[in-house]
Design a protein around this nucleic acid. Structure first.
Length: 276
DNA sequence: CGCATTTCCTGGAGGC
DNA sequence: TGCCTCCAGGAAATGC
């Protein structure tokens, strides 16, 4: 499930492969996957060249010249790939952007579960569209002071970390991994965390995200890099998906519970419940 | 306000 | 082998 490190990996690789390319044609295979600008996406981007590809939160953004942006939200099964146009497109490919280059490649957006989507944002107009809600700050750029303020709410810390409007880019996997490394129980009220604990938690979040980017993301089921290769950070997970196994720190059994409606993995010894 | 539940969707896993 | 049910989850909507 693509979170910040997966989106970052895809954005970097896409940028490397397609920056400067011109869109020669567009094929929309599922109309309801494309949102934003009401004009047909083909009319909007054909003939424009790709200025850069970057990431914001869990989104991969292709920026064009003249200025127009296509925002890809990968949901949980979304994939972006660059393939030769002659290669048969995978099932559930919803959008194909042909590149006017020698190899005749195209950018493909494939999303079987369709929790993701594509937003076309016309130049200047920052109307993000109803479905793309407000985003909190990037965790990797957050100061401990700002983070401490974000946590100053009577809310389960896990629910808060997953709230994209509070902090952008953290999903279920890295949330659990960061909480474990910080020794914080996911059901703790954020407001009950000491300043020191908040500092440790931010540090853990940054450490986990940076390490995951280095490993090019976690491939649990669907996620793949632009070239189809899996990421490898799933092998570094200490709690996520490890129910019933021994904690790497203390050998206690990792347990699964539900927090914020999601599967949540904790070591009850390393992450004690705080009394409130 | 906060939190749980439901909804969307497909494919993979497990039961029988 | 095949059919059924359940489960995964990002984010928004709804209900308590």
């Amino acid at each position: 499930m693509p979170e910040l490190p997966e989106a970052e990996t895809i954005a970097r690789e896409l940028d490397r492969q397609v920056v400067g390319c011109v869109i020669s044609s567009v094929r929309v295979l599922r109309r309801d996957v494309v949102h934003g600008d009401p004009r047909p996406i083909g009319r909007v981007v054909t003939g424009r060249h790709i200025r850069r590809v970057y990431r914001r939160a869990k989104r991969v953004i292709v920026a064009f010249d003249p200025p127009i942006e296509i925002v890809f939200h990968l949901g949980m099964s979304g994939r972006l790939s660059v393939e030769p146009s002659r290669v048969l497109a995978a099932k559930h490919t919803h959008l194909r952007l042909a590149l006017d280059d020698d190899e005749v490649r195209e950018i493909r957006f494939c999303d079987p579960r369709r929790f993701g989507g594509v937003w076309v944002l016309a130049g200047g107009t920052r109307q993000v569209g109803r479905k793309l809600g407000p985003l909190g700050p990037e965790p990797l750029q957050l100061t401990s002071k700002d983070f401490a303020n974000i946590l100053d709410r009577n809310r389960q810390v896990k629910a808060l970390l997953l709230d994209q409007g509070a902090i952008a880019g953290i999903g279920n996997i890295y949330c659990d991994e960061a909480l474990f490394r910080a020794g914080v129980h996911p059901l703790t009220s954020a407001a009950d965390l000491s300043l020191r604990q908040r500092g440790v938690l931010l540090h853990s979040i940054k450490t986990v995200l940076r390490a995951a980017i280095k490993h090019r993301g976690s491939t649990i089921s669907d996620y793949r890099q632009v070239d189809g290769v899996a990421g490898s950070f799933q092998h570094s997970n200490r709690v996520y998906g490890r129910e019933g196994t021994a904690c790497v720190e203390c050998s206690a059994e990792i347990i699964r519970l539900v927090a914020a409606g999601r599967s949540t993995f904790v070591c009850a010894v390393c992450q004690p419940q705080q009394s409130m």
